[in-house]
Amino acid sequence: MANASLLSVRDLTVKFPRIEPVRNLSFDVSEGETLAIVGESGSGKSLTALALMRLLPKAAQITSGRIDFSGRDLLKLDDRSIRSLRGKEIAMIFQEPMTSLNPVLTIGRQITESLRLHEGLSAKAARLRAIELLDLVRIPAPHKRIDDYPHQLSGGMRQRVMIAIAVACRPRLLIADEPTTALDVTIQAQVLDLLDRLRRELSMALILITHDLGIVTQWADNVVVMYAGRKVEQALPEALFADPLHPYTRGLLNASPRLKDDYHYTDGPLTEIPGSIVSAIGENGCPFAPRCPIVRSGCRTRVPDLLVPAEDRLVACPVIFAEGERHVAARGL
């Protein structure tokens, strides 16, 4: 983490008319770093990504916070400046490769469009660059494939094309919103390997939004665990998996089949976290309190502060440090 911070998010709050899906969220991304944002559906991961791009739906508002990207506050930029930043310095890959490509344009057109807009290349130069990019993302026969329409490609190939479009202008930050959720397991690893290789080769920072903890162990440098719009834990992946602190993180790890070597999911049911994330609505204190195995009365009155139990580590749960509770929670409910 020696590098200067490329992106710094402070106290970001996104508000819809009735709910706040992202609350007081802060995190940093250094140059060339991979930050994983983990959490279940509805925890505000994707909205955070859209907020970084300033692409939130109209009903949503950013009510407070700062997003500093290499010295500029993204929330204060006008529309024109933010547009020149999108695609050029910050790019995004979406969850659904099936629907994120324009079905009536060839993939070549879609790659060259951004190159011509941001880099001012001629049609011919952009086409050559697009062929290089398709080769870079390992699409076979790129000079033939460039004239294909998205429906002629498989899901994994389409996600590769999405990646090619996203990295076309050599962005400094790439946001990947669940890039492998819609893909086969065999393709997932290929796509993540590709992202990781591109991150190194193009010296990008990468924000990897996922609910798959297996991805986190292998590819992330730093992990933020989100629950109901708040950061509940942040750690290096090794530390997080060796010693999860927050009860929610523990629940997630216990619910994952890969973490116990001698345990196969056919042996018995996996441990689940009781309840659902909907219970966090209207909680005044810790959003996880309604589902927490070690909840105390104090948890429901005020939002727990982020504590610093070790270097590079944050956790939003004071109860976990109380004697005895640690043991109870570690048993997995």
């Binding site: 791009m53 692409l55 933010i82 547009r83 020149s84 930043l85 999108r86 695609g87 050029k88 790019a91 995004m92 979406f94 994120s100 490509l101 324009n102 469009e113 951004s114 807009l117 941001h118 999405m162 479009i165």
Partner: peptide, 8 residues
């Protein structure tokens, strides 16, 4: 949305 994310 993807097109907007590319700054168009």
């Amino acid at each position: 949305v993807a097109a907007r994310s590319l700054g168009y």
